[in-house]
Amino acid sequence: MSNEHVLDIRKIMEMLPHRYPFLLVDRVLEFESGVRLKAYKNVSMNENYFQGHFPGLPVMPGVLQLEALAQAGGIFVMNSVEESLGDKIFLFTGLNKVKFRRPVVPGDRLELNVFYERHKLNMWKMRGVAEVDGQVTAQGEFSATVANKGDM
């Protein structure tokens, strides 16, 4: 891995439109164009969803683990295409074979692994695996499209 593929939060914020409290990728560690991406999210007790999920037993919602994988997938696509995406946005279009394997709690470092499956035109298929300390927490296949912001 070379340092040119490591993306810090400033570079991630240049790519993704998400902001607090919905930006769920803290750093990209590894990237192989058209192959895979590895990133992470540091899970803190300060996350606003822990107030209600669940009081006295804080657990990161599984759908937010999937959203973190989707955001990592967006970064993967933006770095894999040759041309600039300009005024386009990456939109989640589907989920398949989703499994939740273990809870994610405050203090965990959620590793986000995205693997390329295929794409045609603006439609992308990827496989995502979220892990904490080498144990799978969530996994699934997801699809997404690159769309014009003005068409929304």
Rank of each mutant, 00 (worst) to 15 (best):
E14F: 05
M15R: 12
P17C: 03
H18R: 06
Y20G: 06
P21R: 03
L23R: 01
L24S: 05
R27V: 04
V28R: 07
L29W: 13
E30A: 13
S33K: 15
S33Q: 15
S33H: 08
G34R: 12
G34C: 09
V35K: 15
L37F: 07
K41W: 10
K41P: 06
M45L: 14
N46P: 05
N48T: 11
Y49R: 01
P55T: 07
P58I: 11
V59S: 01
M60Q: 00
P61N: 05
G62P: 07
Q65N: 12
A68L: 06
A68R: 09
L69E: 02
A70W: 05
Q71Y: 03
G74N: 02
G74C: 02
S80R: 07
S80Q: 03
V81L: 13
V81T: 08
E82L: 11
S84C: 08
G86R: 12
D87E: 15
K88G: 01
K88S: 08
K88M: 12
F90M: 06
L91T: 05
L91I: 09
T93P: 06
L95N: 01
N96T: 10
K97P: 07
K99L: 14
F100L: 13
R102W: 02
P103I: 06
D108S: 08
R109T: 09
R109Q: 11
Y116T: 00
R118E: 00
K120Y: 06
L121W: 11
N122H: 09
M123S: 11
M123K: 10
M123Q: 10
M126N: 12
R127Q: 08
A130W: 08
A130N: 10
